[in-house]
Simulated assay, not measured.
Amino acid sequence: MNTKDELLKILSLKLRTIFGKLKIDFEKLQEIRLRMNAPLLIIYENVEYFITEEAKLVKNPTLAVIVTKNEIRETMEYISNYSLYAFEDEIKQGFITINGGHRIGIAGKTIIEDDVIKGMKHISFINIRLAHQVKGCADPVLPYLINEKTDGIYHTLIISPPRCGKTTLLRDIIRQLSDGNTYLSGKSIGVVDERSEIGACYMGTPQNELGIRTDILDCCPKAKGMMMLIRSMSPQIIAVDEIGSKEDLEAIDYVIGCGCKLIATVHGSSIEDIKSKPVLSELVQKKLFERYVLLSNVNGIGHLDEIYDTVGRKLYADHA
């Protein structure tokens, strides 16, 4: 089933009709934002658009169709197959992963007991993030990450602003390293997929291809997951998305101390930006990472800007 068909299945009947008429390449559609009593909005090729009743893309929000409470309710019914209870554990974390690997972020009134989120009701905001695999997007990066002397890789940190392709790049790096390629033999990889974005597991099955030697801990906190994988799955490489907490730093120390290689991503615009953040600056100062890969959307989503080594020597630069 293609992306458009997967999407139409989960939208309310009214929205389904509008998106069915929309003349866009659905493989380039990134997000759909449904907010109760607010204009229908999408992110398409990294640009924000509103959608009219006639299924036209516009920049003026006053021309857009208004999302109603009924559209939200009906869409959630289709997303959950009329059983939100079945997704109770995921709802506690604020998202649901559906067939195809698409992630549905939700917001509303949280139910809290003893400072623990038990659930959510009165869901009024939905963010549909479309999953896209871009096989081969890691091809320009991989030669810089391979340590040919050890048939292994360097500890790598991918730095990128939001919506610039860092998770997509990480996913393809994992797939290629797991399967093996012309640079090195296939490696056993452990993935901590805290928000179900890397593997996009649906009912335990990854919807994205992460390679034949990859094990995934889905919806698991990164720090705890890294420890668990080291102890239980004996990975040669661990991959995680969006590090940043002190707990992450402690787990990273543990992973590297065990001789396991690490690939991680972080929000940022430069190494200097990372240095300005208390926890992340410690990672740079301790020289834990041996490669820094910087992405942007200068020339399209996932544009490879620069690659540096652990001492700040520039290995690659392209400011096209």
Rank of each mutant, 00 (worst) to 15 (best):
L294M: 11
S185K: 12
A55D: 06
K14T: 13
N70Q: 13
N208I: 01
P206E: 08
V65F: 14
G312E: 09
L169M: 01
I24V: 14
I32L: 13
I72A: 08
F289R: 06
I42R: 10
L262Y: 09
T156L: 03
N181F: 04
E148T: 11
N147C: 08
I146K: 01
V191P: 09
Q236F: 02
E6D: 10
S270Q: 02
T97G: 06
Q176N: 05
L304C: 02
A64Q: 06
L29I: 02
Y292Q: 04
R231Q: 08
I237M: 07
P221H: 05
V266L: 02
R213M: 04
I104D: 10
S178M: 00
D139Q: 14
I43P: 00
Y308M: 04
P161H: 09
G152Y: 09
P235W: 04
V255M: 13
F95P: 00
I98W: 01
C137K: 07
I212E: 07
A55G: 11
G108F: 08
E71L: 12
T310W: 02
F125H: 14
I243W: 06
I18V: 15
I111P: 01
I307F: 05
I198P: 01
L41T: 14
G108Y: 10
G105E: 03
D5T: 09
P278D: 03
C258L: 05
V134G: 05
I158R: 07
Y254Q: 10
L29D: 11
K21N: 15
P39C: 04
I104C: 11
G180A: 09
K135Y: 07
D139K: 15
I106H: 04
H319V: 02
D179P: 00
H122L: 13
P140A: 13
L280M: 13
I79R: 12
R129Y: 04
L315T: 07
N2Y: 04
G259Q: 13
F125Q: 11
D215A: 09
R33F: 11
A64T: 09
Y254W: 11
N46A: 15
P206I: 07
V311K: 15
G300N: 04
I18N: 14
S124F: 04
L84R: 10
Y44N: 06
M228I: 15
R73L: 13
I106Q: 08
E74S: 10
E209M: 04
L177K: 08
D193E: 09
V65M: 08
P206T: 07
T97K: 03
Y49Q: 13
I66A: 02
I271K: 02
I128R: 04
C219M: 07
H132L: 07
I66G: 02
M36G: 01
R33W: 06
G152F: 11
K314V: 15
E31K: 01
R103P: 00
D218Q: 06
E247R: 02
R103Q: 01
K224H: 12
V266M: 03
A200F: 05
L217M: 12
K222M: 10
I237K: 07
R313Q: 13
H122N: 14
L170E: 08
I301N: 04
V116G: 01
I117F: 01
C220D: 08
C260G: 11
